[in-house]
Design a binder for these strands. Structure first.
Lengths: 109, 109
DNA sequence: AATATTTATCGTAATATTGCAATGAATAAA
DNA sequence: TTTATTCATTGCAATATTACGATAAATATT
């Protein structure tokens, strides 16, 4: 089916899954790392940096933007993308709460 | 195509994407949370807790096990699953390095 | 041995994701 | 205004993911 039954999970679980899915492709990981490194970047630079075609990069950028992790500002014919640090921070808290579950836990088997 | 071109990314980027993909479905998030909460759990309990069919849960468990995040011990006819805390810790470090990129960074646009 | 219980695997259908060529839209430069 | 340049969108093909019924495999119980 390929269709996640989101209605049977909590909002928190669905939110974690949505953020994680954004990081579930190396191209999007690379895009975010590059945006952090360069601290602002036009789409064309990303196409050069990463080896994927322009429509493919544009599609990945759209997903990240839709999730709120990045912002895009039009500058002439190009578009300057950058991290939305506020939303990144919110996302980070959600993911940390999930990843830090182990601190109150011990091995069993 | 649905085929990620892993060869054009770094090992670190591919590793982050693999771990993130594991968390990219709410059922697997729910499974991991339940394993942490109960601190050991048989497959049947997860089938009851989460509303998915037994083969579906079994498939999700297989993915998590393959990634090394959980272990399974056979106990009679049932299988006791639990978190592999050592590997979880390794994974957490990888993810934290990615999520913490923002600490040396400021907004731009 | 026969039966029940539990989990894994197989097969299959439905949907999602990835990637890119072609093309459109918008601004800049000539 | 014509021509570049840059990015978004559309359309499509290939592959991946999700879900589950049917069934196999393994152990426990009788």
């Amino acid at each position: 089916m390929g269709l996640a039954k989101t209605e049977m999970f909590t909002d928190q679980q669905n939110e974690i899954a949505l953020f994680a899915k954004a990081f579930g492709h190396p191209a999007r990981v690379a895009i975010l790392q590059h945006l952090f490194k360069i601290n602002s970047c036009v789409c064309g630079d990303l196409v050069n940096q990463i080896g994927l075609a322009q429509p493919t990069i544009s599609q990945h950028l759209k997903e990240l933007k839709h999730l709120g992790l990045i912002k895009g500002n039009v500058e002439g014919t190009s578009v300057c993308y950058c991290i939305d640090t506020k939303n990144w921070s919110t996302m980070k808290n959600v993911m940390l709460a999930f990843l830090d579950q182990d601190i109150q836990n011990t091995d069993c088997c």
